[in-house]
Amino acid sequence: MNFVAGIAGAAIILFARFITAVRAVWQGIEPVQRQRVYFANHVSHGDFILLWTVLPDRMRRRTRPVAGADYWLKSPLRRFIGRDVFNAVLIDRNRESRTDDPIAQMAEALDSGASLIVFPEGTRNETDARLLPFKSGIYHLAKARPEVDLVPVWIDNLNRVMPKGEFVPVPLICTVTFGAPLHVGADEAKDAFIARAEQALLALSPDTRSNTQ
């Protein structure tokens, strides 16, 4: 299974590069092996694939996306891709029915040495707004493991590659921009930290950059 998963992973990376010629822009940090939580904007199912693709090989093997169990356990194929290929940390998004605490699951994955990819908007952004308001999970995770770098990552153009409701991707060049890491202050309030994290992510979007130039 591991071998098949390796092949499938390589095929997914090749396909992602073929369609998007994706390029990493390391703006605030260097691509070095350090434990990190990457938090990114979320417009498509391809988001974490692109982020995962641009990470150097060694870092990629230790980086796990955090994803909704409801989506990734639905069919055997999704289960294979989610669990075996991406080694995702699957969390239950339903507050009422869940038995595991997502923050505890993520902290546990961090404690075992993994880096994480999270989408603090909580769901795919299908609106015209550039970013949906963040859920509070990112704050609780930052509080639970304050020493880990929180790295904002802006994924650009993927919404044009595959707009909502389309099933054929159009080849377009995408970029993945990594910003400077954040840490929660010792007595920083939840809302203040979340606003700061949103600003840090928005600042990486090319629209913001071209407006300020």
Partner: peptide, 10 residues
């Protein structure tokens, strides 16, 4: 051509 078209349409 494919690579050029990808750049152009972007």
């Amino acid at each position: 051509s494919f690579a050029a078209l990808r750049e152009f349409v972007t």
